[in-house]
Design a protein around this nucleic acid. Structure first.
Ligand code: MN
Ligand code: MN
Length: 549
DNA sequence: TAAGCTTGCG
DNA sequence: TTCACACGTTCGG
DNA sequence: GAACGTGTGTCTCGCAAGCTTACG
């Protein structure tokens, strides 16, 4: 277990009743970042932050209001906040350091976003205006008409734009470790809409190790926002050169995702020079397989075969490489014969009348009617994930170094890393032990943790009674075996569970059923779970649906 | 004028 | 906007 | 049958205001 440096860190959210609660929270974050992670900021940035912190209270409040909104352009006349006395005075104050800038000219797109259809109509030249009516033509028509007049327009009223966007983006990223979260986390948490497990934080922990990692993230995020902009080859070159200097695992993952998408897109456009290289440089779980198939389509059969002979890194590769070798082996007279045979799970057929709801629900109803010894539930991954999340709660939220760095995290940063288990081995094994001793202990944990965010527990789709039922019907040894398999690759193996589960409380047994409509077929990872269940002597089968008439 | 969507807000 | 799953089309043997 | 691309439900809450469009 990692040692926490005892910089006890109270990061408290502001009281909602404070009319300036947003200001308080924003300042809290700024101070947190500048105090503890100043080494990731440039001198110029720190100076700018200083000036921000010394802004008079009212203009600063207004600026923060605007920073929290979509922006970056605002109509001054539309701004109104009861807690801010003089909007215009504050605007003036904010124009001195470039926090806000008045925009005299507006591009058409900005203009159209800021003003209503009626307001745009006024801007039409007089001789064209009479061709259009507000009732008959939609807003796009007016925009198109305006575009024939000009691409730039004098702002009809004062419009301001936010400055220093890059700095604030950077600060938000450094605090949250992602750009997908924003300051609304403070409020939703304060209101109790979302609740997070409280993990002891240490001030020396940040989402980022070095400044260049922050830069990298910002760059990758920008690329993923508008991937259409750069040409594919340029993008590839940029991502490649960046990869050379980065060590961070999760940034590599983020970049690999982009490279993978780039590869898929280029391959579709038959730009194989780009796509092959993009796949090669991507660590995305599906990248190698995709590359191998792409090579096959390009006719580079030897290359494809060779790649498919690599050790499979995951289930998809295992199955996909095998299929490819069989397919391509014949053509290049490699004479490859398959050793592995696809597992075929037990199955049965069920005939249904036409139904409105989904095939899973319809099958559930039909099966339930045929069998009054068991209760049927449509859970897919939800139930086993919930059991997993409850069982390993203390491990998931263990204060491992670097795993948690702000109070609004739903999961540790390394949840899907290969060493998730090894970094928590002791505590995980301890929970296995507790589970063996007393499975019903999980119900206590349910009561204790109910409502708290957990990456495996969806509180609304599962209830306490179902957990109780599950614990009384699922043999602990079997449950442990399932958990061990999940732990071997959390990212891949938290999905693929059969649609339905049926509990027989009298016999203390259960069975799993994957429903397949006539048009659907078993996915590889679903098949893998079914094979595992068969090996573990867990009753699991596929229900093939037929339709009457 | 109602419905449907986005945005802001706490 | 992401994820997991289902559905539908294309393609080659 | 395999592979690929697309569609669907779901999403962290609930409400109000403002705007646009479809509809009668
Ligand atoms: Mn399913
Ligand atoms: Mn199914």
């Amino acid at each position: 277990m990692s040692q926490a440096s005892e910089h006890s860190t109270a990061l408290t959210a502001a009281d909602i009743n404070n009319p300036f609660y947003y200001q308080e929270n924003f300042i809290t974050v700024i101070k947190w970042v500048t105090e503890f992670h100043a080494r990731l900021l440039l001198k110029a940035e720190l100076e700018l932050i200083d000036r921000f912190l010394t802004l008079p209270q009212q203009p600063q409040a207004l600026l923060i209001r605007l920073l929290l909104r979509k922006g970056p352009l605002f109509r001054v006349a539309k701004l109104s906040y009861p807690e801010i006395d003089s909007i215009t005075a504050s605007i003036c104050a904010l124009e001195t350091d470039g926090w806000l800038t008045t925009e005299a000219l507006l591009g058409l797109e900005n203009l159209a976003n800021l003003f209503t259809k009626a307001e745009l109509a006024v801007l039409l030249d007089e001789d064209t205006a009479h061709n259009y009516s507000l009732a008959k033509h939609n807003k796009a028509t007016f925009i198109a008409a305006l575009s024939k007049q000009s691409g730039q327009f004098a702002a009809p009223e004062q419009v301001v734009s936010l400055g220093h966007h890059a700095l604030f983006q950077r600060l938000r990223l450094m605090f949250f470790g992602t750009l997908r979260q924003d300051f609304s986390a403070f409020v939703t948490t304060e209101l109790g809409h979302t609740r997070y497990e409280q993990v002891k934080l240490t001030t020396d922990t940040c989402a980022f190790q070095c400044r260049s990692d922050v830069d990298t993230y910002l760059y990758l995020d920008e690329l993923s926002q508008n991937p259409e902009q750069a040409c594919a080859a340029d993008m590839l070159a940029a991502l490649k050169s960046q990869a050379a200097q980065s060590t961070s695992l999760w940034l590599t993952r983020k970049r690999s995702r982009l490279l993978f998408d780039l590869g898929v897109k280029s391959a579709r456009e038959q730009q194989f020079l780009v796509s092959n290289e993009a796949f090669e440089h991507s660590t995305h779980p599906a990248a190698r397989l995709r590359l191998a198939r792409s090579l096959e389509r390009q006719g580079a059969l030897e290359n494809a075969f060779e790649l498919a002979c690599a050790d499979p890194l995951n289930l998809d590769e295992e199955v996909g490489f095998e299929r490819l070798k069989v397919r391509v082996g014949k053509k290049i007279s490699q004479n490859y014969t398959t050793v592995v045979k696809a597992f075929s799970p037990p199955s049965f057929q069920l005939t249904l009348a036409p139904h409105d709801n989904s095939v899973e629900w319809a099958a559930l109803e039909a099966l339930q009617r045929l069998d009054d010894t068991s209760s049927y539930h449509y859970c897919e991954n939800k139930l086993f994930c919930a059991l997993f999340g409850l069982t390993f709660w203390p491990a998931i939220f263990a204060p491992i170094q670097g795993a948690f760095f702000h109070p609004f995290q739903r999961q540790p940063n390394d949840l899907y890393d290969a060493d998730f288990y090894s970094r928590r081995r002791e505590i995980i094994e301890q929970q296995f032990e507790l589970l063996t001793q007393d499975p019903l202990r999980l119900l206590q944990r349910w009561d204790e943790k109910i409502g708290l965010s957990n990456p495996f527990v969806d509180w609304r789709s599962i209830d306490r009674a179902l957990i109780t039922l599950a614990l009384s019907c699922i043999n602990t040894t079997q449950l442990i075996a399932i958990f061990r398999r999940m732990l071997s690759s959390l990212y891949n193996l938290r999905r693929g569970f059969p649609d339905l589960i049926a509990f027989n409380p009298t016999a203390s047994t259960f069975q799993l059923i994957e429903v397949k409509s006539p048009t659907d077929k078993l996915q590889d990872h679903q098949r893998a779970w079914l094979q595992f269940f068969a090996e573990q002597k867990i009753k699991a089968s596929v229900c093939h649906i037929l339709y009457s008439g």
